[in-house]
Nucleic acid binder design. Structure first.
Lengths: 203, 203
DNA sequence: CGATTTCCGTATCGATCGATGCAGAAGTCG
DNA sequence: CGACTTCTGCATCGATCGATACGGAAATCG
């Protein structure tokens, strides 16, 4: 559709796609996939429904692009945390990043990947499955990092990397729920620090 | 309205209120407050929308009654756990009960109190706040139980009961999210056991 | 400029949302 | 039985849902 080799270029788009996605991300983050109506979304994006459909396809594809943006933006702390030198620092960075992102002032409380579509109607199950896969993928990446830590001798050889990854992600998802409930940032940070006081947990 | 002192009794209700509430609970549990439409609810309850409004008021009041039923039914493990003799056993019972309830076969995965209304549209914020208060109330009750444990010498005197309660409930909410993502029951059970391997956590 | 392409504002689609009005059936009283 | 009360099935309400059709405005080409 774009850039066929023949003919004039046509009128360029009248709005910034990146900024529109950012606005849409904040709406989905606050209200969830199904709680965010087209009217609310387009009003926040500053465009009409026609422009939204022309630029992003439909509501579900808009959400998919928003989730990509979220992964590389507010949730980028995960990828950075996986590069910490020790498993203990990886876990600490994940929890600290989760607390920071889920309780940032002037941003919606909680985590888009958790509250975006936990329980939905029949028409939203595709997005529900997408987010479930997103969460499970996060846990898998943490497990692989802990597996490497075992191989490197950073973690004791009898450590179960899957168990440990499930523990850290469970804390992270729980923090997201607490944040969505209005719990204070400092309290969550203190709790996360204390949770890693005895590290690593063992089966 | 019911049982005014004058006049005949009138035609009795043609369905079992308790069973209708049970069916509604399962629908809200699976689809959330806003994801459960009146047509889905009434079909599952086996009654018409008119009967639902006559018996329960409206959708929001129906949900409130469903939440009460959930608290005294699937979530009753919390009240029982608080009566365990030691703080350590309280925490263990809470996590074991959470795993059991959020992964019970033939029941919806996850926790109604978590996925019932985490992120909603403007018209659902009353229910959202209701569930946030429900979760915070659970944390408060755990904190008060741990406070008692400190006074009884069951927990070390320097223990922070609020921190410990936040830790246990964060794990519980995280378990609910994992369960909603399809994580296996046995894996969650093993993780919960390991999480309490070093008890209590300290600030 | 004129031709062509694309974007965008308005108006609207059918479906579903939660919620009711109405009338008659069904049951409980004296 | 007959008076009275309540429940229930059908139809429908206005609002909103996600999604489009259409046509004019705007921008880029030769």
């Amino acid at each position: 559709m774009r850039n066929g080799r023949k003919g004039p270029t046509g009128r360029p788009r009248g709005f910034d796609t990146d900024e529109a996605l950012e606005r849409a991300m904040l709406v989905f983050w606050e209200h969830g996939y199904e709680g965010a109506g087209l009217s609310t979304l387009t009003r926040a994006m500053g465009i009409s429904t026609t422009s939204m459909y022309a630029a992003f396809g439909n509501k579900e594809e808009l959400f998919r692009k928003v989730l990509e943006r979220y992964t590389e933006g507010p949730s980028a702390y995960l990828a950075r945390a996986l590069e910490e030198p020790t498993a203990r620092e990886v876990a600490g960075a994940i929890l600290a990043g989760t607390v920071r992102t889920t309780t940032r002032p002037a941003h919606p409380a909680g985590c888009l990947g958790v509250q975006g579509a936990l329980a939905v109607s029949d028409s939203g199950q595709a997005v529900r499955d997408l987010l479930a896969a997103w969460r499970n993928d996060g846990c898998t990446r943490v497990r692989e990092r802990f597996q490497r830590a075992v191989e490197e001798g950073d973690l004791p050889p009898e450590t179960d990397p899957g168990l440990l990854a499930r523990y850290v992600t469970t804390l992270a998802f729980g923090i997201a729920v607490q944040a969505a409930s209005g719990v204070d940032r400092e309290e969550l940070r203190a709790m996360a620090d204390a949770a890693l006081g005895n590290w690593p947990i063992r089966p």
